[in-house]
Structure formats: C-alpha cells, structure tokens
Simulated assay, not measured.
Amino acid sequence: MTDSAASGPAALEPVRVVIAEDNALLREGLQVLLERNGFVVAAAVDTGEKLIAAGRDAGPDLVVTDVRMPPTFRSEGLVAAVRLREENPSLPVVVLSQYVEQSYVAELLDSAGGAGIGYLLKDRVSDVADFVDTLRRVHAGGTAVDPAVISQMIRRHRDPLAGLTPREREVLAVMAEGHSNGAIARRLFVSEAAVVKHIGNVMMKLDLPPNDDQNRRVAAVLTYLRNQES
C-alpha cells in the first residue's frame, strides 16, 4: 500500500509557490486549488510590491501572478514578474491575465530565452488537471503561452521597433538624444555593461549588420525617429 502511494501524484516533489492576485476570492481559491494538488503556497499577496518582496524573501520555486493589481491596475503584476526575472533569470513565472500585455510579454519571454515562462488567459483556464500540469511544466523549465496570446502578437503591425522590449526602447530613445553608453547608463540607473547588452539586442532585432559601430548607432536612431513620425 505504501509503495503504491509513493508512486502516485503525492510522490512529486513539493513546489513552493508565491501567488499574486488582488481579488481575495480568486487568490484564496487559487491557493486552495494548488495546495490540493501538492503545491506549497509560500506566500499569497495582493500587490506588485508585495510580490517582489515575497519573490525575494519566501524562496519560491514558482511565481503565479495576475497582471493588473493595485494601485493603478495596469501592469503591476507583470512588471514585478519582469523585475524578479531580471534578478533571478531561473525563477519560473506563470502570468494569468484577462488581457494580452504585448510589450511586457515580449520582455518576459526574452528573459533567459523564455525558459520557465507561462502566459495564460484566465478565461481559457478551465481544466484544473491541465492547469496544474502547465504549472509543473513551467517549473521544470518549459514554456507555456496561450495560443490566443501568440495569435495577437503575430498580428501586430510590422513596426520595426515592435520586437524591442520596454527597456531596449528606453535605451534607444536616450541613444537618439546623442548620449554615450556611459551617459545612458547613468540616465537609466543601470550598468554600462547592461547598456551594451541592450544596444546589441537592439541592433540584432533591427537587423543591422555588424560594421562600423557609429554607423549602426546612426541607423538605429534613424529607425527610431522615423517610427516616432509615423
């Protein structure tokens, strides 16, 4: 009897989860659902700031977060998830949303090559077993993106800057003002090494071939300025 039980779902290694959801009923319901399926809820919070704190302090193996939370109900949960991934690229994150937040989806998927990332639309999460399996796959390093999210992102207009993350756009915008890498780093409060990395990503995503670095910077800036005019 003991051997049989050890081979079942209960034998799965417990996964410590931090939940972020501002709706108390949904938050508690999600906590009960996860605990019934072998997860350990390390923290359940209701704001993006609390999510960042819990992600740092509670030692989660997985973060499950809503997108829109107090105080502005815009993208606090998603921004917090991106921040946590910047600090710990190996931290698996599953985002549950009623909307497709394209810019931050791109940044989230860009982190650590998209490994350990899930983005699911809430109204499509109806099968508990499938949902639990998705969480475990993301925890194991897999990627799970709702087909509707992929479809909307593919249908985006072919803006040459569309593939840039919010941070890459910020770097490009400051670069367009004529600032050096060091000045960009000081303006955005990041390291100069991070600026070099972001600029490299911008050049690659804008399909600017390696040649004279100054020419590439000018070409990137021109692309940015043309996009602002359109």
Results as ranks from 00 to 15, higher is better:
residue 73 F to L: 14
residue 65 T to L: 00
residue 68 R to F: 03
residue 37 N to V: 03
residue 112 A to E: 14
residue 55 G to Y: 11
residue 28 E to T: 11
residue 4 S to N: 10
residue 47 T to R: 07
residue 110 D to M: 04
residue 52 I to V: 15
residue 27 R to C: 08
residue 25 L to E: 13
residue 112 A to R: 11
residue 4 S to H: 07
residue 119 Y to A: 01
residue 69 M to H: 06
residue 29 G to W: 12
residue 93 V to Q: 08
residue 21 E to W: 02
residue 33 L to R: 06
residue 78 L to P: 02
residue 56 R to D: 05
residue 10 A to I: 09
residue 1 M to G: 10
residue 108 L to F: 10
residue 98 Q to V: 07
residue 61 D to M: 02
residue 52 I to F: 00
residue 86 E to M: 10
residue 14 P to F: 04
residue 56 R to A: 09
residue 92 P to H: 07
residue 68 R to K: 07
residue 26 L to P: 00
residue 104 Y to H: 14
residue 16 R to C: 01
residue 109 L to I: 15
residue 103 S to K: 13
residue 50 K to M: 15
residue 120 L to W: 12
residue 45 V to S: 01
residue 83 R to T: 15
residue 116 G to Y: 07
residue 88 N to K: 10
residue 83 R to D: 10
residue 19 I to V: 15
residue 95 V to H: 01
residue 16 R to A: 13
residue 116 G to I: 10
residue 17 V to P: 12
residue 76 E to I: 01
residue 119 Y to C: 02
residue 94 V to F: 12
residue 86 E to C: 03
residue 112 A to C: 10
residue 47 T to H: 08
residue 94 V to A: 12
residue 91 L to W: 05
residue 46 D to N: 15
residue 93 V to I: 14
residue 3 D to E: 13
residue 88 N to M: 07
residue 17 V to T: 09
residue 57 D to N: 15
residue 24 A to Y: 09
residue 58 A to N: 10
residue 112 A to N: 15
residue 8 G to I: 00
residue 74 R to S: 07
residue 22 D to I: 13
residue 87 E to H: 05
residue 111 S to M: 11
residue 19 I to E: 12
residue 113 G to V: 08
residue 17 V to K: 07
residue 50 K to D: 13
residue 34 L to V: 09
residue 116 G to S: 11
residue 118 G to V: 09
residue 26 L to K: 09
residue 52 I to Y: 00
residue 118 G to Q: 06
residue 5 A to F: 02
residue 85 R to Q: 13
residue 96 L to I: 11
residue 44 A to F: 07
residue 115 A to C: 10
residue 82 V to G: 02
residue 80 A to G: 01
residue 52 I to A: 04
residue 13 E to D: 12
residue 5 A to I: 08
residue 109 L to H: 05
residue 64 V to D: 00
residue 110 D to V: 03
residue 65 T to I: 02
residue 64 V to R: 00
residue 52 I to K: 14
residue 66 D to N: 03
residue 18 V to F: 07
residue 61 D to I: 11
residue 110 D to Q: 08
residue 38 G to L: 04
residue 34 L to W: 06
residue 101 E to I: 11
residue 85 R to S: 08
residue 72 T to F: 06
residue 114 G to F: 02
residue 50 K to C: 04
residue 28 E to M: 12
residue 101 E to Y: 08
residue 103 S to N: 08
residue 16 R to G: 02
residue 76 E to Y: 01
residue 55 G to V: 06
residue 69 M to A: 02
residue 11 A to L: 05
residue 59 G to C: 06
residue 71 P to Y: 05
residue 49 E to C: 02
residue 56 R to P: 03
residue 59 G to T: 01
residue 47 T to S: 06
residue 10 A to R: 15
residue 11 A to S: 15
residue 50 K to Q: 15
residue 7 S to D: 09
residue 77 G to T: 11
residue 120 L to V: 00
residue 26 L to Y: 03
residue 60 P to M: 13
residue 57 D to W: 05
residue 65 T to P: 04
residue 70 P to S: 00
residue 37 N to R: 14
residue 102 Q to F: 09
residue 3 D to Q: 13
residue 17 V to Q: 09
residue 72 T to V: 10
residue 8 G to A: 12
residue 64 V to M: 01
residue 99 Y to I: 00
residue 113 G to A: 07
residue 100 V to E: 08
